[in-house]
């Protein structure tokens, strides 16, 4: 049991979107979404192009998960933030290398490649993008 049934193909299928932060931009209303879509969640247009998303943004809101779902106990407590990237796209991600009392809404963060979860001790490791206060 866990967040979703452990699956290798599922992780493989998503790897490029999650490793490199791919998104899409609606050619009609301009909305930029993560992950990439076939139809714009704002205006319904199907005139979308895939883009690479910026690796910096700011925290819109955040929380500290103290009662995590199965599969994330090892990392708890951890910070989840809603982040607005530099081009306006929004993404939900963990903040890392930062303590809860150091986080503020509006703070600038940068993307970093980290572990998200493991499919058990002997299963595959799932990686993705987290954010942290910029190194420089």
């Amino acid at each position: 049991m866990g967040i979703s049934a452990p699956s290798v193909p599922r992780v493989w299928r998503e790897r490029i979107i999650k490793y490199r932060l791919l998104g899409s931009k609606c050619a009609d209303c301009g909305k930029i979404s993560y992950p990439p879509r076939k139809a714009c969640p704002r205006c319904g247009s199907t005139n979308l192009v895939e883009i690479s998303l910026p690796k910096r943004g700011k925290v819109l809101s955040y929380t500290v998960i103290r009662t995590p779902p199965r599969g994330y106990l090892k990392y708890s407590p951890y910070i989840i933030a809603l982040i607005e990237l530099e081009n306006g796209a929004r993404i939900l991600a963990q903040l890392t290398d930062v303590d809860p009392d150091e986080v503020k809404s509006g703070m600038v963060v940068e993307a970093v490649f980290r572990r998200y979860r493991e499919q058990g001790e002997d299963g595959i490791i799932e990686y993705g993008i987290k954010f942290r206060p910029p190194i420089t």
Partner: peptide, 13 residues
């Protein structure tokens, strides 16, 4: 290393 790091995440950065 932090809890969410390993030699792969190091290598990527």
């Amino acid at each position: 290393p932090g809890l969410d790091e390993d030699s792969i995440t190091f290598a990527v950065e």
